[in-house]
Design a protein around this nucleic acid. Structure first.
Lengths: 358, 358
DNA sequence: CTGTTAGCGCCTTCAA
DNA sequence: TTGAAGGCGCTAACAG
């Protein structure tokens, strides 16, 4: 049998999992106790006589017993599974937050079940229903844009959840995140102080993406406060991909009143924009300053290195895990929903070019 | 209530999920049929009279019925969940393969349960046991380095699985991937043709990472075939992180017989190496050529752009999904395990510097 | 095409 | 500290 064309030895019928080789009752028989005692040995060992406990544990080991979680969950209404629904696996930040969540819950006996909604709220609803069906105990979602039905569903099934990335200003939902609007507002103010007056904005599409909306709003807020204008022609929407960022920047470069500062709502499109400038021979930051959000390795390693905003994403994952497990344990949790961000100044930003072309 | 300090309204006892508001029996009652009929309406609708089916579906909708997957899985021995255990979420490539897997299984009714083994085989074994406990139907693993006990467990519980990234040369396990050794061998040969004679290697740690081992072996193989040597001092091990790549390169730069070509086993450490050269003012590719593996955005956007190897990772995820679902459906699957890779030449490689310093 | 019956494997009373 | 008994919600086998 060659490695490159491995044919499956098909089984009699189909590949249904084997029914467990040994079940709790077998362990009970070997240990000479009742099945209730084995159950206690597994779930509340301190209730048992030490000698009994040892005997049961020996039997468990000898039989290589693995409990059936389905049966357990059916009976106890707990699956020890936490669901995370993120917009996409491909953007490194979601992966990192998820990783941080998983790292936190795994030692507490919870497994992570992960799904991606591809920035679509109906998909998210459908996925959540599928996960509730599978007995997922609690949920992490990203952002505050969700189908209203989602919350009805979660409430109906009594599943704790937490919204991450942003802060839910309505106070209706537990949330952990940072102030995206303040982040880009701060960044824009910095650029204004550097003398920039003509701005461009490259944003992820707003639909179903409150982070992008808030980040755009932050730019507009800062500009308005300084009596500056953001023309429609200077706003480009680009999905989170290098090529889209490049394309968006090319459009901005083609404008007669070309911006001297371009704020992007994430590092990926910002780097795409950087590449457009490289290709076009436009100096960064000499002619145009560019900024991102999320402070990724991608941005930090560019030439020039990208000015960005460090977002507290690992901490978001960690706190989300804490919150959800606490809720599941019945602990009374109080938590700080808002985390700080930090502007990271690098080489892609500088003073506005002195000669103002109008 | 402020958004930043949201206190949980704690429930009477703990936050156990609600028991389902409506169960199958309720639907049966409303529709005026037996519970078996409802079950058929859900799982084999074509067996039913259309009128009956419609009545049941109406009842399902009216009661907002969501089936209990635990009970279903307990009875049918199928959870419609596929597990993927990857070394880490943080390396973009694993995220991308996982994403591709999920995209493929989700429309077929399977959910993805994801865990990270942090490059530790014992952890992987433990996680797998936890997932089998949760009724996961089938598994995707990365690479061919695994605890032998893992396969005993999978066999005992009759769970289909597939190893990805590499090809299992032993022919004992279904696998889908590409030839890592050939990849770096080809790359090294290219560098040799460019006149390089003094090589450096920056590899991920070999322990529990067959991909890194094979990639290192590929470099050695090519060198040996051309009568070239790879000194121990010229081999550096670095975890997949920029800073580790930088550190490794700094050590190589400090050597008296400094390499003129450095092959890294992944793009991240290659970019770290690039940064070390930038800092040290060493010209790339003028003084040193550097290559990566995986052809990531990170590498492609550097200055100079990183020469790398395009690995067929999305396809691996897709084929893994196909294989596993086919096995679970009982279909006889035959598949090509080996996929092609492709060398992507960019600006970080060039001819060896003409003056050979010895 | 539909209903009846039994039981998946476990946990949780209740009683001893 | 331990055992006996019942049932979580669903589906599969067998009738009809």
């Amino acid at each position: 049998m060659t490695a490159s064309a491995l044919k499956t030895r098909s089984r009699s019928r189909s590949d249904k999992p084997n029914r467990p080789a040994t079940v709790l009752k077998d362990v009970a028989r070997l240990a000479g106790v009742s099945s209730a005692t084995v159950s206690r040995a597994l779930n509340a060992p301190n209730l048992l006589d030490v000698a009994t406990l040892t005997r049961v544990q020996d039997a468990v080991r000898k039989l290589r017993y693995v409990p059936n979680g389905q049966a357990r969950a059916l009976r106890s209404q707990r699956s020890f599974t936490i669901g995370a629904i993120v917009p996409s696996f491909d953007y490194a930040l979601y992966a990192r937050a998820t990783s941080s969540l998983e790292r936190e819950i795994e030692p507490r006996g919870y497994a992570l079940i992960l799904a991606s909604n591809h920035y679509d709220l109906k998909t998210e609803l459908r996925l959540t229903r599928a996960l509730i069906e599978r007995g997922v105990d609690a949920f992490m979602f990203v952002g505050s844009d969700h189908d209203p039905e989602l919350f009805v569903l979660l409430k109906e099934f009594g599943r704790p959840y937490v919204l991450t990335w942003g802060i839910d200003r309505s106070g209706q939902h537990p949330s952990i995140g940072f102030d995206s609007q303040a982040a880009t507002r701060t960044m824009t103010e910095h650029l204004i102080r550097l003398g920039h007056r003509e701005f461009g904005l490259i944003s992820a599409p707003h639909e179903g993406n409150d982070r992008a909306r808030e980040r755009s709003a932050g730019v507009r807020e800062a500009l308005r406060a300084h009596g500056l204008d953001l023309k429609d022609s200077h706003v480009q929407y680009a999905p989170i991909a290098l090529s889209a960022g490049t394309l968006a920047m090319e459009k901005l470069l083609a404008l007669r009143d070309r911006p001297t500062a371009v704020v992007a709502t994430n590092d990926v499109v910002a780097v795409g924009a950087l590449m457009a400038c490289r290709k076009a021979g436009v100096g960064v930051p000499g002619e145009i300053s560019i900024t991102g959000v999320d402070n990724t390795d991608l941005g930090a390693t560019q030439t020039p290195a990208l000015t960005s905003i460090q977002t507290p994403i690992m901490e978001v994952g960690r706190l989300a895990a804490n919150y959800l497990t606490a809720r599941l344990e019945g602990t009374d949790v109080e938590f700080q929903g808002e985390l700080p961000f930090e502007i990271v100044l690098r080489d892609s930003t500088g003073p506005a070019p002195s000669a103002g072309s109008a």
